[in-house]
Amino acid sequence: MSIFKVGNQRIDNLIPGTCDKRAFPTSELTYKADSHLAGTDPFIMLDHIGPSTMPNNWGLSGDQGIHPHRGFETITFMFKGNLHHLDTVFEERPFLTNGAVQQMNAGKGIRHGGDFWADKETNEFHEVQLWVNTPAHEKMSEPYVRNYSAKQISNIKHDNLKLRVISGSYQDQTGPVRTFADIRVLHGSMLESSQQESSAIKLEQKHSSQLLFVMTGKLTVNNVPTMAGETLVIKDLLEIDLNGSQNCQFLLISGVPWHEDFASGGPFVMNTKEQIRQAFDDAKSGVF
């Protein structure tokens, strides 16, 4: 039974003007586990954008930034700010705004981008994008995009915690996002500063991959102090005890690994390098 901590990797110009960090993959935390590194399978990548206070009337047009994907799903969390998603599925759907979540299956191929602008009252922009792998037999499935407003996401008051159930189940609540992978995603916030009494979260025992990423504030998990931008890898525990600073926010994600061959190249995630080459050829020739 163990918890160990890893840092993040700074990335530049993911969204110009924001503070961007990559929780994984990094030199310490990769998709495939080996004797020295922890594995994140079925999760491929977690990028944390912000929280950043932007200039008045800040915004970015995605018209020039449309780019392709194939072979995985994304979950986009819009904690603060707005996104008008543009893609080649060509369906009208609501903007993502404060508290909303989007699920996108890239499937056999999709191109997307978006128009971004900050929260109009606070000028804040805060987003996370999580990539989730799909199994080999679903990589060429039909692409789709689904948006869920904050009102469609269940909230649980649990001790000193507010938990939003994004995917999977906790207690008697189920999240709206359902991926091909068997995962659970909880967005947690500390309601008050708590250094004495901890709040417990039961872990999903069928999930061997368990990760906790601290987005803001300070959080102590089973006596392991954790700062914003750090990730905890959790092994063989039934539950975790948390206390931390007021308004500390974190993501607790867990899942069942695919244990399949893994190949990635830029915006594509497949099972072989030949499939990656084919994806680049198809994108270049206009197949998607």
Rank of each mutant, 00 (worst) to 15 (best):
residue 2 S to I: 00
residue 8 N to G: 00
residue 11 I to H: 02
residue 12 D to R: 10
residue 15 I to R: 13
residue 20 D to K: 11
residue 23 A to C: 05
residue 24 F to E: 03
residue 34 D to S: 07
residue 51 P to H: 12
residue 66 I to V: 06
residue 67 H to R: 09
residue 71 G to R: 09
residue 72 F to C: 13
residue 81 G to F: 05
residue 82 N to K: 08
residue 84 H to I: 14
residue 87 D to W: 11
residue 88 T to G: 15
residue 91 E to Q: 12
residue 92 E to C: 10
residue 97 T to G: 15
residue 107 G to L: 06
residue 110 I to N: 09
residue 110 I to A: 12
residue 111 R to T: 15
residue 113 G to Y: 09
residue 117 W to M: 05
residue 119 D to V: 05
residue 121 E to I: 13
residue 122 T to K: 08
residue 130 L to H: 04
residue 131 W to Y: 00
residue 133 N to K: 04
residue 135 P to V: 00
residue 136 A to L: 08
residue 141 S to E: 05
residue 142 E to K: 13
residue 144 Y to H: 12
residue 149 S to A: 15
residue 149 S to C: 09
residue 157 K to P: 05
residue 158 H to P: 02
residue 159 D to L: 03
residue 165 V to R: 00
residue 168 G to R: 01
residue 193 S to R: 12
residue 193 S to L: 11
residue 196 Q to Y: 11
residue 197 E to R: 11
residue 199 S to C: 11
residue 202 K to S: 03
residue 204 E to H: 00
residue 210 Q to I: 07
residue 217 G to D: 10
residue 228 A to F: 05
residue 228 A to S: 11
residue 230 E to A: 04
residue 231 T to Q: 00
residue 235 K to Q: 10
residue 241 D to Q: 12
residue 251 L to K: 02
residue 260 E to M: 03
residue 263 A to H: 07
residue 276 I to F: 02
residue 276 I to R: 00
residue 277 R to V: 07
residue 280 F to Y: 13
residue 280 F to A: 14
residue 285 S to I: 13
residue 285 S to P: 09
residue 286 G to A: 12
residue 288 F to G: 13
